[in-house]
């Protein structure tokens, strides 16, 4: 990989109409022309090639040559894009309401969520709450299809869900652990979305779950776990040997010793594409690519991060076309180009 560009003061980035779009300070800029789409934004996101921006006063959706403004206090992280509908909860004149925007017609409806605003939405009228119990319900009518107490699924002092549950083909996958950390009890479960039946469980597979293409991944330390959600087959890739080269040692004269810095994957900031793992390092600056079929470490580099007194980490990674994009905690976007077939 070859570094082709480095952009500064970038707070977030994504791809819209196959082009790089990024927030540089409060401007939303579309590459390659560098055209300013909007100014004064506080955040943005792209979902299913729909562009949504946010500032303290409104949310704005761009679609099909039109845009819709919704005035009020919103956070993009609370929004869902399901089929042709965009859901978000906002505060307008101190009143909280759920808004549903039909992206085809542009129609906006508001309604009070019953009994509460969803934590995840499957279809327009089918949603989930993930709390001490998992509840599958209709947020419009309040009708509860089913619920399940998570303490029944893992008996610990303080059972909680870790990370975001994954939904694939009407199967709900989630990871439970003992949040008191007084035991090492942990389990990944799969429930049938329609019947709440436990279809599968594993104490060996688990962690921060992420879906790429048609598989669920959990990565940590120097290990990659891959779950086939159809067959429940788990593949464990132990990459100790291959990643030994990423372990470091540093001498700190003030500590009068040599520190061992064993490499560990970031469990949440990575991408899998075409059987290649584009990884970042937990609380550190190494990035690289591993071929998951051959377990070969294809490329790696250390990103120079100058984030002052903010801990230097990689905050985002994306792959688009032949390019790899890395955003760091100093708000610098590093763009790498494949210089050979990887």
């Amino acid at each position: 990989m070859r570094l082709v560009n480095r952009l500064e003061n970038i707070f977030s980035f994504d791809f819209f109409n196959n082009e790089l779009v990024f927030q540089q300070e409060s401007k939303l800029i579309l590459q390659p022309e560098g055209s300013i789409i909007e100014e004064g934004i506080s955040s943005f996101l792209v979902k299913n090639n729909n562009l949504i921006t946010n500032n303290t006063e409104q949310i704005k959706l761009y679609f099909s040559d039109k845009s819709i403004n919704l005035e009020g206090t919103f956070r993009l992280a609370n929004g869902f894009l399901v089929d042709e509908f965009y859901f978000n909860i906002g505060k307008v004149n101190k009143e909280r309401k759920t808004y549903v925007i039909n992206l085809e017609s542009g129609e906006i409806n508001d309604f009070p969520s019953k009994p509460y605003y969803p934590h995840q939405i499957l279809k327009k009228d089918k949603a989930f709450i993930f709390s001490q119990k998992i509840e599958f319900y209709n947020p419009f009518s309040g009708e509860v299809f089913w619920n399940k107490d998570i303490s029944e699924l893992l008996k610990t002092t303080n059972t909680e869900i870790y990370g975001k549950p994954q939904i694939i083909n009407n199967k709900l996958f989630f990871f439970l652990f003992d949040s008191s950390h007084q035991t090492d009890e942990r389990i990944t479960l799969c429930l049938d979305v329609e019947t709440k039946e436990v279809l599968w469980e594993s104490k060996k597979f688990g962690g921060w779950l992420t879906t790429f293409e048609d598989k669920i991944y959990a990565i940590k330390d120097k290990q990659v776990q891959i779950l086939n959600p159809e067959t429940f087959e788990v593949t464990n890739l132990d990459l100790q040997e291959q990643l030994l080269v990423l372990d470091k040692k540093i001498h700190k004269p003030e500590d009068q010793m040599i520190w061992q810095i064993p490499f560990s994957f970031s469990s949440s900031t990575y991408v899998i594409k075409d059987n290649h793992l584009y990884f970042t390092q937990e609380k550190n600056s190494t990035v690289g690519i591993i071929d998951l079929k051959t377990k070969e470490l294809l490329w790696h580099t250390d990103i120079e991060i100058n984030s002052g007194d903010i801990i230097p980490i990689i905050t985002d990674i994306k792959v688009h076309g032949t390019r790899l994009y890395i955003l760091d905690s100093s708000n610098t976007l590093h763009i790498f180009e494949k210089d050979k077939i990887i």
């Binding site: 652990f177 090492d184 962690g207 990565i219 330390d221 061992q260 469990s267 007194d309 903010i310 801990i311």
Partner: peptide, 30 residues
């Protein structure tokens, strides 16, 4: 800590000269 890996983390010195590190990391993910 039972059956877990623990790590005394190395200090990271920022540009401003401040040193940061987590004293002890126990286990991973979570």
């Amino acid at each position: 800590v039972k059956n877990k890996k623990i790590a005394v983390e190395h200090p990271v010195t920022g540009l401003d000269g401040t040193t940061q590190r987590v004293d002890l990391k126990v286990g991973s993910s979570p």
